[in-house]
Design a binder for these strands. Structure first.
Lengths: 193, 193
DNA sequence: ATTCTACTTCGATATTCATCTAATTAGAAT
DNA sequence: ATTCTAATTAGATGAATATCGAAGTAGAAT
C-alpha cells in the first residue's frame, strides 16, 4: 500500500465533499457519460459539469475518451478504490506526519508556569502538572543515585515546595526510592495518573 | 455491512474535507486532547476548535469525557473505520439509489428529436441515435412476426426513411430478420455500437 | 462567596467555491 | 467554406463556512 500524504488525502476528501460531484461519481460508476448527459441528469449547466470533471480529473478519478464531438467520461474505479484503501490505513498516521508533531501545547504550558527559570506554582490540573513534572524529572540523570537531600536541592532551584514535587515524582513513577535514596526511571515507565 | 445513505456519505466527506479537522482527527487518533491543547497544536483559537469538534461529534467520530475543568476528546476509531469501510463498498451504489435514477438526458434527447409525434431527423451522433432507436424499437411487440412491409408502415408513422431505420435495427441487433420477416429481440440482446 | 479556568455559544467577517452567462475552441456535418 | 454541436475557459455572483473576538456558562480553586 502506497503511503498517502496529507495534502492528497485532503484533496481527495475535498473533491468528494460535494453533492454534485458525489452524484457524478455514482453515475459514472455505472456507465460512461458525456458532459451534456451529466448536465441533464443533474439539472446543471455544462460549464458546471466541466468544472467538476476537472476536479475529478486532477485526482485521476475519471478518464476521458473523445467520441465524435463529445467527451465521454468514465470512472476509474481502481483509482477510487486505491484512494479509499489508502485513506483507510493512512488516515491517522499520515495526517500527523504532516508537521503538527511537536507539542506546541506542552511548550505553552511550560512557558506559562516558569518565570525567570523558576516555577511560579504547581498547576492544579492533572494534565498540566504532568507536563511540568516531566520537565522537572528530566533535570535528573538516569543511572545516578540521589540522596533525598540532593533531590531537594535540585528541586528547590525551581520551586520552594520540593517535598510535594518529590512525592509527585514517586506517584507518577518518574523516580524510585529506597532507603532514602532516589533514582530516575526511564520515561517509558512514567505513569500519567 | 450497513448500507450507508447518500446524505450520510456526503456529510462524512464534508467533515473530513477540512485541513484543521483532518489534522485534529490525526492527532486524536494518537491520544486524547483537551480543547486548549488542540488549539495550541493547530495555532487556532478555542472557539474554532469547539466548532470543529461539534462537527466531528455530529458523526460520532469523537467522544468527550470531562476531566476537572476540561473536556478531553478522543477519536472513536471504530466509528471512523466503519464509515470508511461503508464508503468503500457503498460509494457507487448508494449515491445512485439517491434519485438521479431516471435518465433525464434520454428524455431530453427524445423530446428534442420529436415534433408532433414525428422524428424530425435521425441523429448523427451514435449515442443519440441509440436513444432514438431504442424508443422506436419499443414500438414493436416481442413475440410478433412483422413482414418487412409492416415494419416500414410502422416506422413511417415516425419518419419517412424507414429503410435506414430498419437497417439500424439489424445492426444494433434490436431486430432479427429471416426470409423478409422481422421480429423484435429482447432488450438485453441489443448492442450499442 | 468570589475568582479563575476551560469550554461553549453568538455574531460578525472574510474566504472559499459552486454555479451561472458569455465568449472561445475544436470537431462534424452540410 | 460555412454552419452546428459539444466542450471548455473566463469572469461574475451568491451561498456556505472557517475563523475570530466577545459574551455567557459551569466547575474548581481559593
Amino acid at each position: 500500500m502506497e503511503p498517502i500524504d496529507f495534502q492528497t488525502l485532503l484533496e481527495f476528501f475535498k473533491v468528494m465533499a460535494n453533492e454534485s460531484r458525489l452524484k457524478m461519481v455514482g453515475i459514472l460508476a455505472q456507465r460512461q457519460c458525456s458532459v451534456e448527459e451529466l448536465a441533464a441528469l443533474l439539472s446543471l449547466k455544462e460549464p458546471t459539469i466541466s468544472h467538476h470533471l476537472a476536479k475529478l480529473k486532477e485526482l485521476n478519478l475519471v478518464q476521458m475518451q473523445p467520441e465524435g464531438n463529445q467527451h465521454l467520461y468514465r470512472l476509474d474505479s481502481e483509482a477510487l478504490q486505491a484512494l479509499n484503501k489508502a485513506v483507510l490505513t493512512a488516515n491517522p498516521a499520515a495526517s500527523m506526519a504532516q508537521g503538527v508533531t511537536d507539542d506546541a501545547w506542552e511548550t505553552k504550558v511550560l512557558k506559562s508556569y516558569f518565570e525567570e527559570g523558576r516555577l511560579t506554582q504547581i498547576p492544579a490540573s492533572h494534565r498540566k502538572r504532568w507536563v511540568i513534572l516531566k520537565w522537572l524529572a528530566r533535570q535528573f540523570e538516569i543511572g545516578t543515585l540521589y540522596p533525598e537531600k540532593q533531590v531537594n536541592e535540585i528541586l528547590q532551584r525551581y520551586h520552594f515546595d520540593s517535598a510535594t514535587l518529590r512525592r509527585e515524582f514517586i506517584s507518577y513513577q518518574m523516580m524510585q526510592r529506597e532507603n532514602g535514596v532516589y533514582w530516575r526511571e526511564p520515561e517509558e515507565r512514567w505513569k500519567a495518573v
